[in-house]
């Protein structure tokens, strides 16, 4: 950048350009949505298939899913802690989203414990509560990173939750398919789109 005398309008243009550039790094790589989405999607489908072929203790799928998720969250926290000191920039949005992300996982953990202790998991309604929470997290994330597709994902998850709450008796084991569909539309599609955009931007 050369030093030169700026006119007033050039100054204003420079301010706008720099503010836009500072925000360029506030992009989601999509990897979190993809990993979490595929885990949830596969667990739902696997559980559904196990019920279909009458395998006992099919709910063990979710225990395995829970253990893998906790390990991944621990790994992610460790990696952030390890690299945190070397990050080039810290934004207010990034910090807020990280804190809301932590609140999401704590809330999710409470819900999962509640699902088992209250027995709500036996009726399948618990997937509705989970979808409500997913929708909440997606909507906040979409607003923070100005990612419209994820906002649609939030509405799909909330709609899925209502479908489960209203028709859980009629749906039966198909609740798992509703859950899987919401995860595919809410997590996987936006996640893969975000990743494609992120890689494309980093190439430039």
């Amino acid at each position: 950048m050369e030093e030169k005398n700026l006119t007033q309008s050039e100054s204003l243009q420079l301010i706008e350009k720099m503010i836009t550039r500072a925000r360029e790094d506030e992009k989601d790589s999509g990897s979190g949505w993809i990993i979490w989405g595929w885990l949830l999607f596969l667990a739902s489908i696997l559980h559904y298939l196990m019920i279909l072929i009458d395998i006992r203790k099919s709910q063990l799928v979710w225990v395995i899913f829970g253990v893998i998720s906790l390990l991944l969250v621990a790994f992610s926290i460790f990696r952030k802690w390890k690299n945190g000191g070397r990050s080039k920039v810290r934004t207010y949005t990034g910090e807020l989203v990280n804190k809301i992300g932590l609140a999401f996982f704590v809330s999710l953990l409470c819900l999962v414990v509640g699902n088992f202790t209250t027995g709500v998991n036996k009726t399948g309604e618990n997937f509705g509560y989970l979808l409500v929470l997913y929708g909440f997290w997606m909507y906040i994330h979409a607003a923070a990173f100005r990612f419209q597709l994820l906002k649609y994902g939030a509405f799909i998850n909330w709609a899925g939750a209502l479908v489960i709450f209203i028709w859980h008796e009629e749906l039966g084991k198909n609740i798992l398919l509703v859950h899987a569909a919401c995860v595919a539309l809410g997590y996987l599609i936006p996640g893969h789109v975000a990743q494609r955009n992120y890689l494309h931007q980093n190439k430039q």
Partner: peptide, 30 residues
């Protein structure tokens, strides 16, 4: 502030909580 590089730096810093020297160098091209 009425200097190109200093204004660019302040505009970047006003948008973030804190930034490393290399981030400012990359974004301003200085």
């Amino acid at each position: 502030l009425h200097s190109q590089l200093r204004l660019a730096v302040i505009s970047l810093l006003v948008s973030v909580k804190e930034a490393e020297f290399t981030f400012l160098r990359d974004k301003t091209g200085a």
